[in-house]
Simulated assay, not measured.
Amino acid sequence: MLDGPRLPPRAGGPATSLVVLLHGYGADGRDLIDLGEYWAPLLPNTAFVSPHAPEPLAIAPVGRQWFGYTERDDRERWTGVQSAQRALDGFLDAELARLNLPGSRLALVGFSQGTMMALHTGLRRTVAPAGIVGFSGIHVLPPARAMAEFDAEIIARPPVLLIHGDLDQVIPPLALPRAVESLQRQGIAVRAHLSNGLAHGIDATGLSLAGSFLTEVLA
């Protein structure tokens, strides 16, 4: 079972919603938990958790990975999100049960590889999350021959906000319009923002946009 740092609702008392923060390749849950502190004034009744990815980083003695990411190609990404989905799904179910919340009170926030996991897992949840935020990521697609099966797997269609830097050299900015197109093709309402002058990271504008989005979908 996954685990990681948690923040209880700032207002005290039971949580009325849950935001799960999914870190990028080579980081761990501590990398994103501060986002909960940033958004807590907007979401005082929300609990935050940032699980450590299930695997130790393959190329270094510290850090975690949702899946191996050495080739960084479509095949590796597709195999990876499929392999890690079960662990993340189980963690989401356990956290919702712990807080006595329905799946509709869940929002997912991912960065980079965490965005890949948020989109892949969130769109396959039996109960659709309230929303998904993805920073600097990719909507992972299968090989063309498997698109029919892929379409059938998409059973949840929450609103999605995607944010990307126009100077990102890790995941090219072209991933943003490609993700928008693929999600819209599935009938998913997508908002997108390209941050000027931003490399592979999260800036103040992105934090503000994501905070407003989370406040809206978890209202």
Score class of each variant (00 low, 15 high):
138 I>W: 03
139 H>V: 14
140 V>F: 03
140 V>S: 07
141 L>W: 07
141 L>T: 10
141 L>A: 03
142 P>H: 01
142 P>K: 00
143 P>E: 04
143 P>M: 03
143 P>L: 04
144 A>L: 11
144 A>F: 09
145 R>Y: 08
145 R>S: 12
145 R>M: 11
146 A>F: 05
146 A>M: 10
146 A>R: 14
146 A>Q: 10
147 M>R: 11
147 M>Q: 15
148 A>Y: 08
148 A>D: 15
149 E>L: 08
150 F>P: 02
150 F>R: 01
151 D>V: 12
152 A>E: 14
152 A>N: 07
152 A>C: 07
153 E>Y: 09
154 I>G: 02
154 I>W: 12
156 A>G: 09
156 A>R: 02
156 A>H: 00
157 R>Q: 08
158 P>S: 00
158 P>C: 06
158 P>N: 00
160 V>D: 02
161 L>C: 03
161 L>F: 07
161 L>Y: 04
162 L>D: 08
162 L>R: 00
162 L>I: 05
163 I>W: 03
163 I>M: 09
165 G>D: 01
165 G>A: 10
165 G>W: 00
166 D>H: 07
166 D>G: 04
166 D>N: 06
167 L>A: 12
167 L>P: 05
168 D>C: 01
168 D>H: 02
169 Q>A: 15
170 V>A: 14
170 V>E: 15
170 V>Y: 04
170 V>Q: 14
171 I>L: 11
172 P>S: 11
172 P>M: 07
172 P>A: 14
172 P>Y: 05
173 P>W: 13
174 L>N: 13
174 L>V: 15
174 L>G: 12
175 A>Q: 12
175 A>R: 01
176 L>M: 02
177 P>F: 07
177 P>K: 12
178 R>V: 12
178 R>L: 15
179 A>N: 01
179 A>G: 01
180 V>T: 15
180 V>F: 06
181 E>I: 13
182 S>K: 10
182 S>Q: 13
182 S>L: 11
183 L>A: 03
183 L>K: 05
183 L>M: 10
183 L>G: 04
184 Q>C: 15
184 Q>Y: 12
184 Q>I: 14
184 Q>D: 14
184 Q>T: 15
184 Q>E: 15
184 Q>G: 14
185 R>V: 11
185 R>C: 10
185 R>I: 11
185 R>T: 15
185 R>K: 14
185 R>A: 15
